[in-house]
Design a protein around this nucleic acid. Structure first.
Lengths: 330, 330
DNA sequence: TTTAATAACGCAATCGTTTGCGAAAACATT
DNA sequence: AATGTTTTCGCAAACGATTGCGTTATTAAA
């Protein structure tokens, strides 16, 4: 690798390492003359500080960890893209690991994060994570952990979430406005916090509605299951006239079933989803959806982490508001 | 942070740091008795080696860099997911940066990679990268760079690519078999190596075809442009009867136009694309596509990098084969 | 009993920086 | 001229691990 070091610069210039170090960061103790000499040589030699040495000495790794169940997911990608952008701007490096929804891999990953002395961590826990030992251990070691999207139920943790209840509320209102009465609502894994929150709110609002709405709740953990469920429903005589999907993945499955049955949207069946915005725009008419921006969530999460690193100890649960994006599907 | 160190273990046990260090890695010089004592204490103290200290001393960072134009892209996602998987299995950490297709950010990123002493780099260059100085500097410093997907034209670089020509050939053959005669082919930025390769081959095969195929080539750099182009074409009286898209992004635009015009697939118009496989399966009928697996490409790239790190100096340009995945769109 | 061999461990240098503190040199003040 | 200030720099100790080599015990061989 043959990287130039402070020592080399010092030797060729006949001064001390500390002088070189200080000169390169414009320390007032160093005279302008020597400073310029040093900087010039450093430039021609392509000097790059060895991050490991710096971090070892300063105990400031400038590395942030990020863990998601999987990287192949449009929502996480936008979240990560957003966080990466901010990290780079602020001089942090991102270390990204995926848990594959496996608690074992998850805790292995936490060990890797600790070994690499990350200064903070963004974590979206897997659907099957029940004990948070690894996470709490980090928090005890003063490494702030910002949970995002699917977060633990435990109190007194830093969380940034989509405004799940609010999103469900927007969806519910749109459903009520549509006057449709036979609703099928697709939800994901019942163990997920986002499932619980979204389902609870939607259920509450639609059930308290004076007019008689028939709400059927179906759980599906992937597109295929969603497709099967909707396909089955659409074959019955008492079929739904509106389908709600709590996520893009379920929307994909539902749309597949609808397309195969050749039902026209929104005449024969209306569709509304909670989504990141990519999938709904693929169809025509575009699907009406409640936007849940991974991008905004990423910005929020980063700001929150920076605050923690700056010393803020207030535990907070923050949310980004949702908005209704009208398509033509309802 | 309060992390336990070798020194702390050594002091509480009354032995030397080197003994602790050796015991923890089962060095034969250390007796079994002391070794076990040390390992036990290390476990109860949650000892984790400080990666920075280790890397500084061993000059082996165990960090791999990865740069893509953007993270919000299904193809890159699968590539990254694949590389991350292998990295983790092999004890490497991944440092991921996006260039936003901006050569300036690109070279800033390279500096970050150098500062963090990455041992190797996966890079998909931006569409506007013309001088490779930063990259060649790394290569000179014995840091292997594996270019992937959109790669420089320069020879003697390590590259892993989709079998672009082969993919185009498969598409061309499928087009010929379809008997359609009025083809519109959508291609991306003419500056991209993948555009050139795919276009060249498709053009060559279709033009040498004895039967008279009318091939219209259109460049579009995003979905919106693709939609506009196809929409315009479908409004003419001499409209296309088959549309080829070289990427998912263009496919999305084309499909939007087709859906809006309410043309039925494949009766009124056939569609075929080169794709990673996610988007084509959203529609019904599913779009026939030539699969370009980011996942496989990632595996190949990783293997290639490992070979380079192991000392292989052979410059290679590797490709992953494509396959035709039949949908109902042609 | 002496010598040689081996097992088990510690010393100390090293990786490349950062930084508190002291020292010499230059300058300013009486 | 003597003293006090500043400016400008170097020394040396960290940060936490690795490792060649030397040093003791311990055991085996002669």
């Amino acid at each position: 690798m043959n990287n130039t070091t402070l020592k080399q610069i010092a030797q060729t210039l006949g001064c001390s390492i500390s002088t070189v170090s200080r000169a390169l960061k414009h320390h007032p103790d160093i005279s302008i003359k020597t400073r310029e000499k040093i900087i010039e040589l450093a430039n021609t030699l392509d000097y790059e500080p060895n991050a490991f040495a710096v971090h070892l000495r300063t105990r400031n790794s400038k590395v942030i960890g990020l863990m998601v169940p999987t990287l192949s997911n449009y929502f996480y990608e936008t979240f990560i893209a957003s966080v990466e952008e901010e990290s780079r701007k602020n001089g942090y490096a991102l270390m990204i690991l995926q848990s594959a929804n496996d608690p074992v891999i998850e805790s292995d990953n936490l060990k890797l994060f600790r070994q690499n002395r990350v200064m903070g961590l963004f974590a979206c826990i897997s659907a099957h994570t029940h004990h948070l030992d690894g996470f709490t251990k980090m928090i005890e070691q003063k490494i702030p952990v910002i949970f995002f999207d699917n977060v633990p139920n435990e109190l007194s943790l830093n969380k940034v979430c989509l405004a799940d209840e609010h999103a469900a509320e927007l969806a519910a209102n749109a459903i009520i406005q549509s006057k449709r009465k036979n609703i099928v609502a697709l939800f994901g894994d019942p163990g997920l916090s986002i499932t619980q929150k979204r389902m609870g709110k939607l259920n509450a609002i639609l059930n308290q509605n004076k007019e008689s709405i028939k709400l059927t709740i179906v759980h599906a953990v992937n597109s295929a299951e969603a497709e099967r469920a909707i396909s089955k429903n659409l074959s019955t005589k008492n079929k739904a006239d509106l389908i709600f999907c709590m996520s893009d993945e379920l929307l994909i499955g539902a749309m597949k079933a609808i397309q195969i049955k050749q039902f026209s949207i929104p005449d024969q069946i209306a569709v509304i989803a909670i989504s990141n915005g990519f999938v709904p725009k693929l169809y025509y008419p575009e699907i009406t959806y409640i936007e849940t921006s991974g991008y905004k969530l990423g910005k929020l999460a980063f700001t929150h982490l920076m605050a923690c690193l700056a010393g803020s100890t207030a535990i907070q649960e923050l949310t980004v508001e949702s908005i209704l994006v009208k398509g033509g599907s309802i």
